[in-house]
């Protein structure tokens, strides 16, 4: 067992756990943050994407022993004081969600993109979500929603 100290959604956390436990399992089973989904468990589908130190990563391939001192943001960390993030609003408004299983990961990839590049091109958006599989939507509305969110952020800060 090891003790790790890290930040999840701006909150300091200290947990004692197996060093080989995945971040995904810590988030869902230890911290009750079940917004992050497990699809393939092998880095292929992107359903488990979270932001680690500013970058999107598959939480199914990050181990506890790699977490000390890291800053993690999950889908639960996006809304502020009950207000949804522009990405969340745009996904709802554009009808970009069907079954919803891929959406938390999709939004975290999009969030990491907008943090780095506030006005991405369509190609840059497609590149940013190229590691996120969606079995339902066909992606068109997802890309539209991300474009819309980028505009919302630029216009309203």
């Amino acid at each position: 067992m090891i003790k790790i100290k890290f930040t999840v959604n701006s909150e300091e956390r200290e947990i004692v756990t197996e060093p080989t436990r995945t971040l995904l399992s810590i988030l869902r089973e230890e911290l009750g943050l079940t917004g992050t989904k497990e699809g393939c468990g092998k880095g292929e589908c992107g359903a488990c994407t979270v932001i680690m130190d500013g970058k999107p990563v598959p939480s199914c391939l990050v181990l506890a022993c790699q977490l000390d001192g890291c800053e993690i943001t999950t889908i639960e960390g996006l809304s502020e004081n009950g207000n949804l993030d522009p990405l969340q609003k745009a996904f709802i408004e554009e009808g970009a969600v069907q079954c919803g299983f891929c959406i938390p990961g999709m939004i975290m990839s999009a969030k990491a993109l907008l943090m780095r590049n506030p006005s991405p091109t369509e190609d840059e958006i497609k590149e940013a979500i190229s590691g996120n599989l969606c079995r339902c939507t066909g992606y068109t509305k997802i890309v539209k929603a991300i474009e819309k969110a980028a505009k919302m952020i630029i216009h309203h800060g």
Binding site: G43, G46, P58, S109, S130
Partner: peptide, 9 residues
């Protein structure tokens, strides 16, 4: 290579 997520790790 891979995807953005895989490239980060």
């Amino acid at each position: 290579m891979g995807s953005p997520q895989i490239r980060n790790l």
